[in-house]
Design a protein around this nucleic acid. Sequence first.
DNA 1: TTGAAAGCGCTAACAA
DNA 2: TTGTTAGCGCTTTCAA
Lengths: 348, 348
Amino acid sequence: MKTTSDVTIYDVAKALNLSPSTVSRGLKDHPHIHTDTIKKIKAKAKEMGYRQNKLASSLRKKSTETIGVVVPRLNSYFMAAVIAGMEEITNQHGYGLIISQSQESSRKETACVSTLFNSRVHGLLVSLAYDTENVDHFNQIIRKNIPVVFFDRVFDCPGCMGVMIDNFKAGYELTSHLISQGCRRIMHLSGNLLRNVYSGRFEGYRQALADHGIAFDDELLITGDLGSQSGIEAARAALNMKNRPDGIFTANDTSAVEVIYELQKSGIRVPDDIAVAGFNNEPVSRVIQPCLTTVDYPAREIGRLAASSLINILKDKGSTSLSAIIVKHELIIRESSLRKKVPGTIKT
Amino acid sequence: MKTTSDVTIYDVAKALNLSPSTVSRGLKDHPHIHTDTIKKIKAKAKEMGYRQNKLASSLRKKSTETIGVVVPRLNSYFMAAVIAGMEEITNQHGYGLIISQSQESSRKETACVSTLFNSRVHGLLVSLAYDTENVDHFNQIIRKNIPVVFFDRVFDCPGCMGVMIDNFKAGYELTSHLISQGCRRIMHLSGNLLRNVYSGRFEGYRQALADHGIAFDDELLITGDLGSQSGIEAARAALNMKNRPDGIFTANDTSAVEVIYELQKSGIRVPDDIAVAGFNNEPVSRVIQPCLTTVDYPAREIGRLAASSLINILKDKGSTSLSAIIVKHELIIRESSLRKKVPGTIKT
DNA sequence: TTGAAAGCGCTAACAA
DNA sequence: TTGTTAGCGCTTTCAA
C-alpha cells in the first residue's frame, strides 16, 4: 500500500504561518526556537496527525540510526535474551535494531548482510551461521567502514571484534569435572569445528584429557549439527562401541537431552554407567531427568556488551583497539554427571 | 557512523556517459533500455561497488516494501517458526520484515507500533502483549489505512483480521480428554483472560465440564503470567486444597512443567493422582517425565497465513471481507494425562 | 531507446 | 529567533 496523504512539516508550517525549517527545528527542541513557538508547533503537529518521515530524514542526514542483527535462529532463550540486551543499549543511544535470521545457512546469511547493507545500517551485530566457512560476505561492508561486532559465534579476522565466553576454558572445566567423577573414556559430540564455539570446547576437552594423562581417541569425537537427531545418533554410536565411553560431553543441551533419552532407552543409567554433560544452560536442562550438567553464560550481558562495543566504535573511531571481550561463564553441575554424591554441590 | 562516500547512479552515469535515468532504468531491467546498455550499466555498477539507496528509492516511491512484526517475545520455538513462515511469504513478494518485541508489555508494544508506523511499514503483523487491554495504539495506524493482521493473540475489533486456532475447541477437547481419563475435579491455570487465547481455552474448559455434568468451581480457576513461578504456585495451591483436584490443565507448557515438578516433589504421582495437561507442544513437553499431554499448532503455517493475508489486503483492497482464519490444532496425548493405559494411543 | 527535470520530505548552512 | 534555499539519491513524466 502506498502511504496515503501524509502530513508534512510543510503542512504544519503553512497552518501556522511559519517556515518549514522552523517547524523542523521546533519539533526537535532546537535551542534557537522560542519556547512558545515550540509549543505551538508541537500542538499543531499533533493535532494534524503529523509523523516524521524517517526516510526523508535519514536520506538528508545520510544516516539511518539503525543497527543490523544477524543471528542463526531466534528460537532459543539465549538469543531472545541476547537481543533484549542489545535493544536495551541501542535504544538508550537512539538506535533502532533490524533483526534477521540466517536459518543457520551461509547463503541466507549473505543475503541478510546484503539487505542490511543496502538498508544503510550503521553497524552489524552478528552470530555466524552453522556452515559459514569464511567471512567474504562481510568484506564489502567492512570496506565501507561499517563496523561489525560478532558475538558468541565469532570469526577471527583482523579488524573484527567479538564478544564471547572462553569456550576453551569452559570445555576444559567441564571435561575435568567429568574426569573428577571417574570418567576415563569421554565421548565428545561437537558441531562444525570451524565455529569457534565448537572448536574451543573441543580443544578444551582435549587439553583436559591430556592434562589428566588420558589419550585422545578420535573415535570418541563425533561432529554433527547438534540437533535432536545427532544426539540420538551419537548415543547409538556410543552404545555400539566395543569399548563404550563412560562419559559424554555434548556441545549443546538439545543434543545432550536426546543422548540421555537414547541411553536410558537402552537401559543405561545416567550418570552411573555413562555421565552426560551439555552446554548452554537452556531451560530444558533443568527439566530432563537427571538434570543436566551444563555451562551457563550470561546472554543478556553478551547482548549488552556487543551493542555497547559497536556503539563505542560508532561514536569515536578510536577505541577499535580491542579485538575481543570475554564474558564469564559458569559450570553448572547437576545430577547427570554427579557420580560421587557430595551433598550441597548440586545446583538447580 | 555517517555513510561514507557512496557510489550513486550519478557516478555510474558519468562513468558511462549516460544519464542517471537510464542507469536507474537499466538497473531494474526496464524494457525500453537496450540490452547491451543494460549489460554495460550492470557491469559498471558492480565494478564501482554501487548499491541502491533504499531510503532515496522509498522516499521517491513513497513506499517502503516492508512489513512490521510485533511479538511478545522471541524466545519460543513457536515464535521462531511463525516468523520463519512470515519471511518465507513476504520475501516471495518482495517485502522485508522488521521484527520487534513488546516484552509482553503494553507500553512497549505502543512504542513498537509507533516506531514501525514512523518507519512507514506497509502493514503490521501483531501478536498482542500479555497486558494489553485495548487496541487504541493501533487506531492511528488503522486510520491511515495501514492494515493490521493479528495472529495467535488477536483482538476482536471491527476491520481487524486474525489468524489463530480454535482455542475454545482445543480447551474443550483437552478438558474432555481429562474427564475421559476419570478426572472430575480439574483445575485450570490460565493467563490474562483478556487475551483470546486464554479466555478461549478457559471457556472451552468450562463448557466441557458443563457438558459432562461437572459443576464449575471457581476455586479451581487460577490466573497468572504462566511463567515458571505461576506454575509452582498453582501446584501449591492445588496441594493445599482440602478437596484436591485430580487434574490440572494449564494454558501453556512452561507452567505445566513446573506444576508436574512441584507435584512430584510432594510425592504426588502424575498422572495417577493428578493428571496434567499443557498447551503449545513446546519441545520441553517431550522431555519432561512423564511426557506432557498438550495441544500442537502449526506455527510456521500460522506465520505463512498471517503474511499472505496481509499481502492480499495490500495487493487489492477488496478481500478484507474475511475477519478470521482458523488453523487446525491437534491434541497430543502423552503420559502426563493417561490413566487408562491403552497401548498404541500415545503420541511422541 | 535515451535524456532532462522535477520532486519525494527533510535538514542545515547561510542569511536576515 | 526565524526564513531561504539547496540538495540527500532516487524515480518517473514528459520530451526528444
